[in-house]
C-alpha cells in the first residue's frame, strides 16, 4: 500500500472529499497507483461512482455530530461508510490478472475490493493526519488473506459489514450489529469505556 498521495487542493481534505470532482480525481489517482504496484488495470464507471458518492454524502451529512469531541470517531465512521458505499455500487472492474499473480494476496484475490479499501484507508489516514496531526496504522489483519476471504463473502451478502472490516483493518473495535449508525457506535463505545473503568476500579 502506498503513502497517501491525493490531488492538490486549497481546501481541507475533509471538504475536498465531499466534492464529486475531487473525489473522482482522487479515486482515479489511487487506482493508477494500485495498477502501478500490482499490474492490474481497472475500468472506472463514472455513473456508479457518482451514485456511491451521493449515497455516502447523504449518510455522512445526516449523521454529522454536533459535539466537536466526537469528530475523530466521526471521521473513522465516515471512512468505513465510504468503503461500504463503494463496495455496494462497485464502480470499478478489474482487468486480467498478471500471469504470475499470487492469489493468496488480497490485491489479486479481490482486486476491486482491495483497490476500494486502499483508497478509503489512505483517505482516512490523510484526513486524520491533517485534522488531528495524528498517524494511523494498518493492522496485520489487512495483510492476512483469511480475513479477505471472510471480508469478500460477508460484503457480498451484506455491504454494511464493510464498515466492521474497515474498523478491523485500522485497529478499531468493530460494530457488527448496526454498523451504519454513528449514534449506536458512540453509545457502545461509552458503555465499553464505563465497563473498563468499573473493572479497573
Amino acid at each position: 500500500m502506498s503513502d497517501h498521495h491525493f490531488p492538490q487542493t486549497t481546501e481541507p481534505l475533509r471538504v475536498a472529499i465531499r466534492r464529486l470532482r475531487w473525489f473522482r480525481t482522487a479515486f482515479a489517482q489511487q487506482l493508477a497507483e494500485v495498477t502501478a504496484e500490482t499490474g492490474v488495470r481497472f475500468t472506472l464507471d463514472d455513473r456508479k461512482l457518482a451514485a456511491a458518492f451521493v449515497q455516502w454524502l447523504r449518510h455522512v451529512e445526516a449523521q454529522k455530530p454536533g459535539d466537536r469531541t466526537q469528530r475523530r470517531a466521526y471521521f473513522d465512521f465516515a471512512s468505513g461508510l465510504m468503503l461500504r458505499d463503494l463496495l455496494r455500487d462497485l464502480p470499478i472492474t478489474a482487468g486480467p490478472l498478471p500471469l504470475d499473480a499470487d492469489l493468496s494476496r488480497a490485491e489479486y484475490y479481490w482486486p476491486e475490493g482491495f483497490a476500494c479499501t486502499v483508497f478509503c484507508l489512505n483517505m482516512h489516514a490523510a484526513v486524520v493526519e491533517q485534522e488531528f496531526d495524528a498517524s494511523t496504522t494498518t493492522t496485520p489483519k489487512f495483510f492476512d488473506i483469511r480475513h479477505w476471504w471472510s471480508f469478500r463473502e460477508n460484503v457480498t451478502e451484506d455491504a454494511n459489514t464493510a464498515i466492521g472490516f474497515f474498523d478491523v483493518f485500522v485497529g478499531l473495535e468493530p460494530e457488527w450489529q448496526i454498523p451504519d449508525s454513528f449514534r449506536l457506535r458512540l453509545d457502545r463505545a461509552l458503555i465499553a469505556k464505563k465497563n473498563a473503568e468499573r473493572l479497573s476500579a
Binding site: 464529486l20 473522482r24 463514472d46 455513473r47 461512482l49 457518482a50 451521493v54 449515497q55
Partner: peptide, 20 residues
C-alpha cells in the same frame, strides 16, 4: 456550483443528476 467553468462541472453534474 462553486466552480463556474461549465466544461469542467457539467460531466459531474450530469452524473449527479443520474444518481438522483
Amino acid at each position: 456550483s462553486d466552480d463556474h467553468d461549465l466544461t469542467v462541472t457539467l460531466p459531474a453534474c450530469a452524473n449527479m443528476a443520474l444518481a438522483l
